[in-house]
Amino acid sequence: MALPSIFSADIAATVVERINQLKPTTQPQWGKMDVAQMLAHCNVTYEMVYENKHPKPNFLMKLFLKSFIKHIVTNEQPYKRNSQTAPAFLIKSTKDFQTEKKRLINYITKTQQLGETYFDQKESHSFGRLTKEEWNNMFYKHLDHHLHQFGV
């Protein structure tokens, strides 16, 4: 079954509504991140698309990521609780809830407005070219996983 499309205005709005239900005091149902760290963690996916702040993996690392990690990240299967994450996604410092929330909503809005055509066959930071379905799965599945983590 296909995941909901983050490129759809309705689905993007629903995800933003869920984010807007979060409060700085919202507690996780599992994991170690607080809510502001989780929002910053979700922002990393979009930083890798829109910003030039994360070093690209070298050839061998990219080969490993494409061979072993890409399918896990881009398929339709939900992530398991407490799954391991890549080092760039580890958020250990204190983050500002409102700043991270605003950034994430802006990234989701930008992604939806650019649309699936923009992303179809676009080169990803770590996995090479992805189809629009793979981009959608990566974006939506990650957000949905962490919003469930925080009960919204």
Rank of each mutant, 00 (worst) to 15 (best):
M1Y: 02
A2G: 07
A2H: 05
A2N: 13
F7E: 08
I11P: 09
A13P: 00
E17H: 09
Q21V: 00
L22S: 08
T25Q: 12
T25G: 07
P28S: 12
D34P: 00
D34V: 06
A36P: 03
Q37S: 04
L39Y: 04
C42E: 07
C42N: 12
N43R: 02
T45Y: 01
T45M: 04
N52P: 04
K56W: 04
N58G: 07
L60R: 12
M61N: 06
F64N: 12
S67Y: 09
S67I: 05
I69N: 14
I69H: 12
K70P: 12
T74R: 14
N75G: 15
N75F: 11
E76F: 01
Q77C: 12
Q77S: 15
N82F: 11
N82C: 12
Q84P: 10
T85A: 15
T85K: 12
T85D: 12
A86K: 04
F89P: 02
T94D: 03
K95Q: 13
Q98Y: 02
Q98L: 01
E100P: 03
K101N: 09
K102M: 06
Y107D: 13
Y107A: 14
I108L: 12
T109W: 02
Q112T: 12
Q112C: 13
Q112N: 13
F119N: 05
F119G: 03
F119K: 09
F119P: 01
K122G: 05
S124R: 04
S124W: 04
G128P: 07
W135V: 11
N136M: 09
N137H: 11
K141T: 15
L143S: 09
D144F: 08
H145G: 15
H145A: 15
H146K: 10
L147F: 09
L147H: 13
H148C: 09
G151W: 11
V152L: 10
